[in-house]
Structures are given as structure tokens and as C-alpha cells.
């Protein structure tokens, strides 16, 4: 009796040790995740301050931070950020919404798919940025032309993922819908849309990154405001510290949008573990 209870305490202490080791390991990994970017910044700072890399091209991160507050204080920065976010959001929605609708239709209806598939395949490789001159001629140098450029780049990844999402829905759910008498409207909203949602969200996540890439380039070509414009003019006037502020902002918003979309994903797809 005594022996067996001893045995149990011994097993318990062994398990507790193993568990502690596991916790320690997880903590170590978390530290690595936080430490790696900080380490990079520290190395950059040191190399730049000791002039081992040219501080004119790679100003120390601390001076970039100071410059950020300096620019923010003038109010200039908010103007550029605001206008860029407006264009991104507008362009993003203009790309995503039609992509989802057309994607669902292509996934559900074979005639639509076979008609549009070749067009999609032929148009997809054309970079929308290369079409910017045409877009500007047609729509003018304004926010709309930038939104359309973004919409064009966001459209395809979302479309393709939506089509794949619908066509990959397990056939048994189609059978269930048919057997229980789902009409096409119900099929659209109850089966095709939610069934395609997980892949669709991956496409939207990709589209979000592409929207940021596109806005910077689009604002470099034909704009007098926005983060891309800021980066471009500061580069041309060789105020590289300010240029870096623009780059860091883009990186920050990319990260922020990813987090927001992940949160949205968890909200919209509660059935996925």
C-alpha cells in the first residue's frame, strides 16, 4: 500500500519535471520570436553607428524612430498615411467583392467557368502596374485610378482561391443539399459560400499583401500624396531617413492587416479548429 503510493508520487514528480521542461522550451521559442527582429535592429544600429555600413544609405534605426516622431509632429505623415489607407481600402474592396461573386459563380456554374477561365488565365499574368498609364488616361490622376490599380491586382488571387474553394467542396455536401431540396439561392448561401470561405480567406490574405505592394508602386508613378509618394520623393531628394519611415509604415500596416484578417477569419469560420 505504502509502496504503491510512493510509486505514484515518484511518477508524478517525473511527469512534473517533464512538463516543466516543456514549458521552458515553449518560452525559449517565444523569446526567439521576439528576439530575432530586435537583434537585427541592434546589429544594424551598431554597424551603422560604427560606419561599417554607410549610414547615409542605412541610417541607424534610432534616428529613423526620431525622424518618425518628427514627421508625425508636422502632421504631414498623417496626411500621407490617411490618403494611402483610403486608397488601399477602396481598391481592396473594389477587387475583393467582384472576385468573390464571380469566383462563386465560376465555381458553381460550369458554363460560366468554361467561358471565363481562358480570360482569367490570359489576363492574370499582366501586371496591373503596367496598365497604370492606360488607367490614368481613362480615369485621370486621382484616387480612383489608384484604387482601380489595386483592385486589379487584388482581384485575381481572390478569384482563383474562391473558384478552388467551391470546386473543392466535398461532393457529399452537394448531395445532402440536393437530397434535402436546396434551391439554388440556398445552395449559394448555405453550401457554396461557407464551403469556399476558408480558401477564400487565404486568397484575401494574399490580396491584402498585394494591395500594399501595389499602392506604393502606384503612388510612385502618378501621385502627389500617399506613403508611396513619400518614399519616392524622399528617395529622390536623398532624405533616406524619411524614406525608411515610409518603408517601416508599410511593413507595420502589412502586419496589422494580417492580424485583423486573421481575427476576421476566426470570426467568420468558427467551425475550423
Amino acid at each position: 500500500m505504502k509502496e504503491s503510493s510512493n510509486h505514484i508520487t515518484r511518477s508524478e514528480s517525473i511527469e512534473r519535471q517533464l512538463w516543466r521542461r516543456k514549458v521552458r522550451r515553449t518560452r525559449a521559442f517565444q523569446t526567439l520570436t521576439i528576439a530575432s527582429p530586435i537583434l537585427l535592429l541592434v546589429v544594424w544600429e551598431i554597424l551603422s553607428r560604427t560606419a561599417m555600413i554607410d549610414p547615409r544609405f542605412f541610417p541607424p534605426p534610432t534616428t529613423i524612430i526620431v525622424e518618425f516622431f518628427h514627421l508625425a509632429a508636422t502632421g504631414q505623415l498623417f496626411h500621407h498615411v490617411g490618403i494611402s489607407l483610403y486608397r488601399i481600402l477602396g481598391g481592396f474592396l473594389m477587387g475583393v467583392i467582384p472576385a468573390i461573386i464571380i469566383g462563386l459563380l465560376m465555381g458553381m456554374y460550369l458554363p460560366v467557368r468554361y467561358t471565363l477561365q481562358p480570360l482569367v488565365m490570359a489576363l492574370m499574368p499582366i501586371p496591373t502596374l503596367a496598365l497604370m498609364p492606360i488607367i490614368i488616361i481613362v480615369f485621370g490622376i486621382n484616387d480612383l485610378s489608384k484604387m482601380i490599380t489595386i483592385a486589379g491586382s487584388v482581384f485575381f488571387p481572390v478569384l482563383i482561391n474562391t473558384v478552388a474553394g467551391v470546386t473543392n467542396i466535398d461532393h457529399i455536401y452537394v448531395d445532402i443539399a440536393k437530397n434535402y431540396g436546396a434551391k439554388s439561392k440556398d445552395y449559394f448561401f448555405k453550401i457554396a459560400l461557407p464551403g469556399a470561405l476558408p480558401m477564400m480567406m487565404e486568397g484575401i490574405q494574399m490580396g491584402q499583401a498585394i494591395a500594399l505592394l501595389t499602392i506604393v508602386a502606384a503612388e510612385m508613378i502618378g501621385a502627389n500624396s500617399g506613403i508611396g509618394y513619400l518614399i519616392w520623393t524622399k528617395y529622390k531628394t536623398f532624405v533616406l531617413k524619411d524614406m525608411y519611415v515610409g518603408l517601416v509604415l508599410i511593413s507595420f500596416f502589412g502586419y496589422l492587416f494580417s492580424l485583423l484578417l486573421r481575427a476576421l477569419q476566426r470570426k467568420l469560420i468558427p467551425w475550423q479548429k
Binding site: 466535398d170 457529399i172 455536401y173 448531395d175 445532402i176 443539399a177 437530397n179 434535402y180 431540396g181 436546396a182 434551391k183 440556398d186 448555405k190 453550401i191 461557407p194 464551403g195 470561405l197 469560420i269 467551425w271
Partner: peptide, 26 residues
């Protein structure tokens, strides 16, 4: 109405919405 083999429940509907599926469709 058919009772399917395994995997015959729709993953994006709750238990309740799966059960009421046929009633909702009609």
C-alpha cells in the same frame, strides 16, 4: 430523406442547424 454514410453532416453548420437543414430548405 437520406441518411448518409459518415461525413454526412455539414461542417459549417452547428448541430442544431444541421438538424433543421431539411426544414429550412423547404
Amino acid at each position: 430523406s437520406m441518411i448518409f454514410q459518415e461525413q454526412g453532416v455539414i461542417p459549417w453548420m452547428t448541430v442544431q442547424n444541421n438538424v433543421s437543414f431539411g426544414l429550412r430548405m423547404r
